[in-house]
Amino acid sequence: MTKPWLLLTLVGADRPGIVAQVTRVLFGVGAELGETAMMRLGNQFAIMMMVRGAGTTDEVAGLLESTRADFGLKLHVDEIDAALHQHREPDVSVIVHSADRSGIVADVTAALLEAGMNILDLRSDVGGSADKPIYIMQIDGETTDGIEPIEQCVAQLADQGLTVRVTPLQTMRG
């Protein structure tokens, strides 16, 4: 029987060498890595990683204990019901920006959900300056009812002072 995928999440102050050290330890015990996402959020580095073949959740946590301690990371391991080769293709991109205020993500994602959009990828940032922050959000998703409901929903968001751009995406395959 195929070994289950585990989802590792690791977060800690960003320092060079975290990824290399974590993956070296896992490779050393014959682990297989699946899809991963890693990024700097704030001054922290966050890792989400599909891993299998390195033992149970407790065993993987044990394997990474010295790395966790060396880098001062927070580590979490869960068994997940995941599979590879399940990619989906976004057919719409939504980019939002405005002066920062509370509730932007909640407002935008609720409106997009209502308009039939399933989010596949979302990245948001706070830019500008500490006293005049701006919020920028990039979302890729798939629509259930086409682009028109998304465009209508965006018009309503614009009334709330958000600048929103919707771009239909068409994957070229050849």
């Binding site: 995406l169 068409q170 994957t171 070229m172």
Partner: peptide
């Protein structure tokens, strides 16, 4: 633009 390929399944 986003591309995929018959020779590279399951990735765009």
């Amino acid at each position: 633009g986003r591309e995929g390929c018959l020779s590279i399944p399951d990735y765009t």
